[in-house]
Amino acid sequence: MREKILMFIEKNSRIDLKELAVMLGVDEVMVANELEIMEQEGIICGYHTMIDWSKTSTEKVTALIEVRVTPQRGQGFDNVAERIYKYPEVQSVYLISGGFDLMVILEGKTLRQVSQFVSDKLSTLEPVLSTATHFILKKYKEHGTVLCTGESDERMLVTP
């Protein structure tokens, strides 16, 4: 049941609890309890809103930054990762396999702001060996949702 609840609210966290319970064929109280427990257990970490900022007047720049670092004795990558993710403008930090170590996703108001962060804050961290910054030019799809097209129902209104 947990999985079904999660799969549903991952796509639509604004669903009315009563409706969700009806659709899953269970009691409303049970759904509410499960949600609360999963919040406490940190399985549900938040209820965010997906926004296509490019359709607003707010300017935003997103960059993906590849970071190569020297792991530290006793702490591996955790310490340096923490020093990076504490910055509020950092959206995500992942430790990854392959040619570099950390993938940092950064959001800023301007190109300049982002490059300043990279040169002043990121590159100057002692364990950081090198960085490579990629700016996002267009978002096609995010969190499983296609951002760039509007789809309509192509079906005929009545069919057998």
């Binding site: 129902d153 079906r155 005929m156 209104l157 009545v158 069919t159 057998p160």
Partner: peptide, 11 residues
Amino acid sequence: DAISLGVGEPD
């Protein structure tokens, strides 16, 4: 501008 509950095929 009619909406439909009349189709016999998946959405």
